[in-house]
Design a protein around this nucleic acid. Structure first.
Length: 589
RNA sequence: GGUUCGGUAGCUCAGCUGGAUAGAGCGUCAUCCUUCUAAGAUGAGGGCCAUUGGUUCGAAUCCAAUCCGAAUCACCA
């Protein structure tokens, strides 16, 4: 059992036997003792003192004695400072912990294994991926890895937004301006090629609007009447009617984009068990509307449009079917949720989608619950903040985006330069070098995007390159490589003999012991940053330890064996933690 | 206007189920490679935790109000 849990339970039991007071173990506050005080763990007494009507000193003494009696092999001493009861945990406990922990079994499996779907990425097929998509992809991947680490089964899916007016905009611009050019003929990556026409559309649209306004038209009217917009709208209509020529163009341009996406996904390490296409799903949900009407969850207005009234839930009225009988975004999503449920029978479904859709997902879950969809309660929205530039939001149509491919390439280049400057891998083959540059460059980028709370928006300054020192991916990768380098020299077979632990050795043991709790916390909050912070703290602690104590030249053979084991466990934990972020750690760098 | 989220060091961020003197990283300054990888370590400096009031033995953390910023409240997706 986890030591903190044990302390909580013992406290609860001791209070009961001492004073016949029932306090839930979860309510006992156990903290790591501040370094300036003696001890390892601290119980805050104020909470019960009041209830007991005794002074903290007395309660502390009685509780301390009782606890020590209950856990004689674990608690060696205790002291009381003001209302804080500090326990010192025995060397033996930590030594046994280090001895029994296996690098292959760092994370105990969950009791109730669940099947969880993670939907992420959701790209549009009219433009290449940008920095915001990277945050989405890395979050989705990481959450999937974290859940797997807990022992759950994960199904990764992607919904591609491959239809709609924005796609038609790229299409019409291509028709008008491309003269039959293709990605091949211009040797451009397909997604970038199509994205260029999306920008061209917007430029042309703006010019047309300006021209109309110059001709005396009101701005608002001009924005609706611009010929290129009319053309795009017409195209969408044709697409919906199944016009062969339009569909051909659509398929051709989408295939270019997919080729481009595939390259990017491969480079950043993203994959999906199943990809859904909106062109196939946008008509879903129709039966559900009927069902909702029958169940009186929905109601029909005079114009025959269908709505749900969510005002009792503190939300607004929401349309679910237009008066012309077509589905809206919400209807599709309800339909898709049902489809996914039928296909995979998952216990929960996590949507990695930007925070601009918080309202949408709130409504989605609510409607699914009201329709009594089987997995409705398992819908979670991993809402993440936008990535913004110092100048404000990124806008694809204005070309003010940090392109994913460019950024990834730049990161890999920087890692190449830095690695070469340090000259520590002269024995690597060319292939190994390329792999290493990728590992470090992507590690820096992924860590950068995952180390902050997902729900907060973040600002990325393209002028300042992403760091390789301090609270970064490469710092942790480096620590791992450093340990591995030592272990290559010392070997990894150890025989552990009972040992006194120095403060830093004990601290490492304590830090290692909290890994499973950190993973669980990250999973519970859908927040990989918890693991990023943990990995950083562990690496930092190891580096302090490393600077203070020698492993291969330890004071004694017994110490050496112990420290090799600590090295093995730290390296393995760093690897697991970084793996949960989707970041590889090199053996040498 | 309603709802939701945010405001902590020069910058980027932790800490928020109330607990001991508010922490990291970057940047600045100063030390440490004849000894296991210096992408490292050690130290210094840097704070009215947006403001005001309340609850409490105790508030960055909870409550209320105010100020500032963002998202959303589409028969777009």
């Amino acid at each position: 059992m986890n030591l903190i849990t044990l302390l909580k339970q013992t406290t609860s039991a001791s209070l009961d036997s001492l004073y016949q007071v029932k306090i839930q173990p979860e309510l006992v506050l156990v903290n790591a003792t501040k370094p300036e005080f003696e001890g390892d763990y601290t119980i805050v007494l104020f909470a019960f003192v009041k209830q007991l009507g005794k002074n903290p000193e007395v309660v502390g003494n009685e509780l301390g004695n009782a606890m020590q009696k209950a856990l004689p092999t674990i608690i060696t001493e205790f002291n009381i400072v003001k209302g804080f009861l500090n326990f010192t945990i025995s060397n033996d406990y930590w030594f046994e912990f280090i001895k029994n922990l296996s690098p292959n079994e760092l994370m105990p499996a969950v009791e109730h294994k669940r099947k969880i779907m993670v939907e992420y990425s959701s790209p549009n097929t009219n433009k290449p991926l940008h920095l915001g998509h990277l945050r989405n992809n890395f979050l989705g991947w990481s959450i999937a890895e974290i859940l797997k680490l807990q022992g759950h089964e994960v199904v990764k899916t992607c919904i591609v937004n491959d239809r709609g007016i924005h796609i038609c905009k790229s299409m019409i611009a291509w028709q008008l301006f491309a003269n039959g050019a293709t990605p091949e003929s211009t040797s451009k990556k397909g997604d970038h090629f199509v994205g260029d026409y999306y920008v061209k559309y917007n430029d042309a649209y703006k010019a047309e609007v300006a021209e109309l306004v110059a001709g005396g038209m009101m701005q608002e009217m001009a924005e609706k009447e611009a010929p290129i917009l009319k053309g795009a709208q017409e195209m969408l209509l044709k697409w919906e009617q199944g016009d062969a020529a339009t569909l051909d163009l659509w398929k051709k341009m989408n295939s270019w984009v997919y080729e481009g996406f595939e390259v990017t996904y491969k480079k950043i390490g993203s994959d999906f068990f199943k990809t859904y296409y909106e062109s196939n799903t946008y008509l879903l949900g129709k039966e559900l509307v009927e069902e909702g009407l029958t169940k009186k969850v929905f109601y029909q207005k005079e114009d025959s449009s269908v709505w749900i009234d969510l005002t009792p839930d503190g939300l607004d009225e929401k349309i679910v079917r237009r008066k012309d009988g077509t589905s809206v975004y919400m209807t599709q999503d309800i339909g898709l949720a049902q489809l996914k449920q039928k296909e995979f029978n998952t216990d929960a479904s996590i949507y990695v989608v930007g925070d601009e859709q918080n309202y949408h997902f709130k409504v989605l879950k609510l409607i699914c619950q009201k329709l009594e969809q089987p997995a409705a309660d398992g819908i979670y929205h991993l809402s993440y903040g936008m990535v913004e530039l110092p100048t404000g939001k990124m806008k694809s149509r204005e070309g003010t985006v940090v392109d994913a491919d460019d950024l990834v390439d730049e990161m890999i280049n920087i890692s190449k330069e830095k690695t070469e400057a340090l000259g520590k891998v002269s024995d690597f083959t060319n292939e190994q070098l390329i792999a290493l540059y990728n590992t470090i460059g992507l590690g820096a980028l992924k860590f950068f995007l995952l180390r902050v709370d997902p729900k907060k928006k973040m600002i990325f300054n393209p002028e300042e390159s992403i760091d390789f020192h301090g609270f970064t991916g490469p710092f942790i990768q480096y620590t791992h490589a450093r340990i591995k380098s030592i272990l290559r020299k010392t070997g990894t077979t150890v025989t552990l003999t009972t040992n006194e632990l120095l403060p830093l050795e004990k601290q490492l043991a304590i830090e290692l012991s909290t890994f499973p709790a950190m993973v669980n916390e990250a999973a519970e909050n859908l927040d990989p940053s918890k693991i990023a912070i943990y990995a950083f703290n562990l690496a930092k602690l190891f580096n302090t330890f490393y600077a203070e104590h020698s492993i291969s030249n330890a004071e004694s053979e017994i110490k050496k064996q112990l420290r090799i084991q600590l090295g093995i466990l730290t390296a393995a934990t760093l690897q697991k933690a970084m793996g949960a972020l989707g970041i590889a750690v090199p053996e040498q760098m």
